Structure formats: structure tokens, C-alpha cells
Simulated assay, not measured.
Amino acid sequence: MPRKPDVNTARDELMAEFQALVADTEKLLQSSAGLAGEEAEHLRDQLRTGLSKARERIDSAQGLLRDQSKAAVDATEDYLGDHPWQAVGVAAGVGFLLGLLVGRR
């Protein structure tokens, strides 16, 4: 199960990146309200750079998550192919337990 920390780490890094991007964007928008000309252009360039970096990080995290998800799906398909009756038994057991829990309400 070494994949879970990788997925959680990627998700946490992505969320931190989004929060930083939002904070930077808000700060730039507030400070650029009274600016014109070269200063405004400089702030817009900073904003474009930040958005570009965020997009690259998102693409990287998306690729990592896609690869890890594909590995999990492949492992599940292999297991189900090798042990179909065990999978049916587990699914029936989980369904039975869920039925008991729902029936209690």
C-alpha cells in the first residue's frame, strides 16, 4: 500500500499550491487597482507566471494520480481475474453487512 501516501502528498501539495495561487492573485488584484502603465504590466506578468506554474503543477499532479489510479485498477483486475469467487464472496458479505446496517434504521 505505498501508493496512498503518494496520492495524499500529491493532493496536499496541489491544495497548498491552489491556496497560494488564490492568495497571490487576490494580493495582486488589490495592489493593482490604482496602478497603470508599466507597473500594471509588471503585475500582470507576475500573475501570468504564477498561473503558468500552477498549471504545470496541476498537469504534473494529474499525471501522477492517473498513473497511480491505473496501477490500482490493473492490480484490482488482476486479483479479480485470479480469484473471482473470493471477490464474489467479499462483495456478498459487504452487501449483507450494509443491508443489516440499513435495516437497523
Rank of each mutant, 00 (worst) to 15 (best):
M1L: 09
M1A: 13
M1E: 09
P2C: 02
R3K: 05
P5N: 05
P5L: 06
D6V: 14
V7E: 07
V7F: 05
T9P: 00
T9F: 06
A10E: 09
A10N: 08
L14D: 06
A16K: 11
A16P: 02
A16D: 14
A16C: 01
A16V: 03
E17A: 15
A20V: 04
A20L: 12
L21D: 11
L21A: 15
V22G: 02
V22S: 13
V22A: 15
D24G: 10
D24H: 06
T25M: 06
E26W: 00
E26H: 07
E26F: 06
L28K: 02
L29M: 13
L29R: 09
Q30M: 09
L35I: 01
L35D: 12
L35W: 00
A36T: 12
G37Y: 01
A40Q: 10
A40W: 01
E41P: 00
E41Q: 13
H42I: 06
L43T: 06
D45N: 14
D45T: 08
D45V: 03
Q46R: 14
Q46H: 03
L47R: 05
G50P: 01
L51T: 08
S52V: 03
S52W: 04
K53P: 00
A54L: 02
R55I: 04
R55A: 12
E56M: 09
S60L: 10
A61W: 00
A61I: 04
L64C: 00
L65Q: 05
R66S: 15
D67M: 07
D67K: 14
D67S: 15
S69T: 14
S69Y: 08
K70P: 00
K70N: 13
A72P: 00
D74H: 05
D74M: 08
A75F: 03
A75E: 15
T76I: 11
T76M: 09
E77H: 06
D78Y: 02
L80T: 10
G81I: 03
G81N: 13
D82M: 08
H83A: 09
H83D: 10
P84H: 02
W85R: 09
W85K: 11
Q86K: 05
Q86S: 06
V88A: 09
A91H: 04
A91W: 02
A91Q: 05
A92K: 10
G93E: 10
G93P: 01
G95Q: 08
F96D: 06
L98F: 07
G99D: 05
L100G: 02
L100Y: 02
V102K: 12
G103V: 02
G103L: 12
R105Q: 13
